[in-house]
């Protein structure tokens, strides 16, 4: 009897919170296909009545959305590739190669991970401005192509696998970079997938950096364009179906990756727990 009651209460809690956590997305999807009067009269309803794709069409015709999506894809692809490559190279060096200054470098890296990102907004702008690249693709991309967290995860990974295979390769006369590229990297697949997903998600969703790196609408990425859309570049009316639709389209790529690679997301959060 007691276990039955526990079970019932447990499921009731879980179902209630599933609704709390997922229903906002249902609202978002449904309202993207509603007319504006319908969206403001029945915001909770999961059914668009009448169903219309007007807002979706206007997202592509009447806003900078196509430009933003192009910029987001460009930034995300370059940043993800570079972050993973540079991060695994540095992680490998810090884990395996004996070079002077290795320990202080790693300690510095850990320290940098603790610097709160928001504090760096004005400082980053100052440097971009001083270098003369403010408001360019370079400003949008270059500061993001390396991050301490990727290096840290890769170093932890290399610390945890035995060195025997690569030593064999090295003894066979392969150079350090060749060993790294053709022997080490292929064995690091699980860690590489984790950092790739993190880099993808991080750069696709990145917002504050774009605020201080560019101001020209033709350089906006999706989050920046979306923020601009919401804070009033649309003109009259609330136009919620359009805004929700644009936000929905911006969410879909990460949602797809999440569904496919879920266990790697989970893994990342768990690694955080072990540090404590």
């Amino acid at each position: 009897m007691r276990t039955l009651a526990t079970r019932f209460a447990g499921y009731a809690i879980l179902v209630f919170f599933s609704l709390v956590f997922l229903y906002p997305f249902v609202i978002q999807i449904a309202n993207s296909f509603k007319t504006e009067p319908d969206a403001s009269a029945n915001p909770l309803s999961p059914i668009a009545h009448p169903f219309t794709t007007d807002s979706m069409a206007r997202i592509f015709d009447g806003t900078g959305f196509p430009t933003w999506i192009g910029n987001s894809v460009l930034v995300t692809v370059i940043v993800t590739i570079c972050r993973v490559l540079f991060g695994s190279m540095a992680g490998y060096a810090l884990s395996r190669l004996r070079f002077p200054g290795r320990r202080p470098l790693f300690a510095t890296l850990i320290g940098l991970m603790a610097v709160p990102g928001v504090v760096l907004l004005i400082p980053k702008f100052l440097v971009l401005n001083q270098l003369g690249i403010y408001n360019t693709y370079a400003a949008l991309i270059v500061p993001m192509i390396a991050d301490a967290a990727t290096v840290f995860i890769m170093k932890q990974f290399f610390d945890s696998v035995p060195v025997s295979v690569e030593e064999a390769a090295r003894i066979d006369g392969a150079g350090i970079f060749r060993t790294f590229w053709s022997v080490v990297l292929p064995t690091a697949r699980p860690a590489l997938i984790t950092v790739t997903i993190l880099a993808f998600q991080g750069s696709w969703n990145e917002f504050p950096h774009t605020v201080v790196a560019v101001q020209d609408p033709s350089l906006f990425t999706l989050p920046r364009g979306l923020a601009d859309l919401v804070s009033g570049s649309l003109g009259s009316g609330s136009q919620y179906p359009l805004k929700l639709g644009a936000a929905l389209l911006a969410t879909i790529p990460v949602a797809i990756i999440f569904v496919i690679f879920q266990r790697y997301f989970v893994r990342d959060a768990n690694e955080g727990a072990e540090k404590g």
Binding site: P24, N205, A227, K243, A247, T251, V254
Partner: peptide, 14 residues
Amino acid sequence: VTSSVAISVVFLFM
């Protein structure tokens, strides 16, 4: 895992 900006739009509407 979703974008903070995108989700802010949803809550603004809610």
